[in-house]
């Protein structure tokens, strides 16, 4: 499968990655090779086969909505690149 520049740019938007020209060229080749390779699955007839995400049956887990963990905000914010007044700081999002 041929991957166009437009596809790489589009996937870059989805993946939130900004690739250099060199990386783009490499990504085009890698993705094209990989899609050709995984295209092998088309040899298989999977009509009527249910897609399987879990290999044995488990049910939705229900519980009472009770808070069991304490407030750990101060500690968690220590990991933030930037924090202020008990909140994360992000760049301005609108003018």
């Amino acid at each position: 499968m041929t991957i166009t520049d437009e596809t790489i740019d589009y996937v870059g938007i989805l993946a939130k990655l900004e690739l250099s020209d060199e990386e783009k060229a490499r990504a085009k080749k890698d993705m094209s090779d990989m899609l050709d390779y995984v295209g092998k699955l088309n040899e298989l007839d999977t009509d009527g086969v249910e897609p399987m995400s879990h290999t044995f049956s488990i049910n939705n887990v229900m519980r009472e909505d009770v808070v069991t963990n304490g407030d750990d905000r101060e500690n968690m914010l220590l990991n933030a690149p930037e924090a202020k007044d008990g909140a994360y700081v992000v760049p301005k999002t609108f003018n």
């Binding site: 899609l35 995984v38 699955l41 088309n42 298989l44 897609p51 399987m52």
Partner: peptide, 13 residues
């Protein structure tokens, strides 16, 4: 791709 892979997973299982 993705759904095809999940169906293949069922066959492999």
């Amino acid at each position: 791709y993705y759904m095809k892979a999940l169906r293949t997973k069922a066959l492999i299982k």
